[in-house]
Nucleic acid binder design. Structure first.
Lengths: 169, 169
DNA sequence: CGTGAAACCGTCGCCCC
DNA sequence: GGGGCGACGGTTTCACG
């Protein structure tokens, strides 16, 4: 269940497609060292098994006019499961909210938001988020700049672990 | 500079490729209502202009054995530009750190980290992050669950704004 | 931006190990 | 079980109108 059913070729396929999701299948096959048909079969299998959830173009938010990125730390009044779910449902409906993570610790949820400008975000903050039922507190932090934003997982770490497991047989 | 040089077709292309980055060019052309060659030319132009930064398969971290996701709030001793850059450089080299955002407010940086398990993360936390030069404080929060994680930007908002701008001519 | 053509690719059936 | 070969249909990507 923890990546154990994948062999080295599967992991290479995932790593390559994570790095370049538009690569042609023949190019991918060449890189992982098999021919195209089995390579495509593996990709389909990985997709169907849920290892690959989709493919997305990484668009530049800033260039598209989304100049504001904000992290919002949200505390709720009630942390009963029903109330958590209700809040999560709202987050899914708010387009400005791109990520909603439930955390341990002082704060209940961490939200990543984008907006075209500060006033758009402020409207959302006061009219939607802060005034939503069950929301006790909201603390926001503007992103000044982003030093790193890489998608997915570090396959280097995965390979390292596999090597350790194999040597420890 | 704020998405103003893009026409409606360009925005549709970006929205479609954000939703499905592996769509064939003919399918994309059909959806945006032009023929394939000009569609491909537009895609190339958008790529070259930086509106599209790349294409990535969205792989399932959990299924690959990365069971732990953590947000780390980092405070530095010195916020001089040189020292900020040095810290950002380290974040870029740490594979467990996937995102590094500089924030306003109490905390200097917010890091999103992934790890195969808690002990791997703890090692990274104590041996690398907390003990790095210039790091004053680190507060971490485990992600209990993720209610929403959509890539990119909300094109609905963009179209809404374009409509407002056009009606206000 | 569209059309046509050539090269390439995705995909299938079949054979092999 | 998985990988390779060959072939067909669709796609990418030119040059040109």
């Amino acid at each position: 269940m923890a990546g154990s059913k994948l062999d080295e070729i599967d992991r290479k396929i995932l790593a390559e497609l994570q790095a370049d999701g538009r690569m042609t299948n023949v190019e991918l096959a060449k890189r992982v060292g098999i021919s195209a048909p089995p390579c495509l079969r593996r990709v389909r299998t990985l997709e169907d098994a849920g290892y690959i959830r989709g493919y997305h173009a990484d668009v530049s938010a800033r260039d598209l006019g989304f100049e504001v990125q904000v992290f919002a730390m949200v505390g709720l009044v009630s942390q009963a499961e029903v109330d958590l779910s209700v809040f999560e449902g709202k987050c899914r409906e708010w387009p400005l909210v791109r990520e909603c993570h439930m955390l341990n610790g002082e704060v209940d949820f961490l939200l990543k938001c984008v907006a075209p400008d500060l006033s758009t975000f402020q409207s959302f903050l006061t009219e939607q988020l802060t005034s939503a039922d069950n929301v006790a507190s909201v603390k926001t932090s503007l992103v000044i700049r982003c030093a790193k934003d890489v998608p997915g997982v570090p396959f280097e770490i995965l390979e390292e672990r596999v090597r350790q497991l194999e040597s420890g047989l």
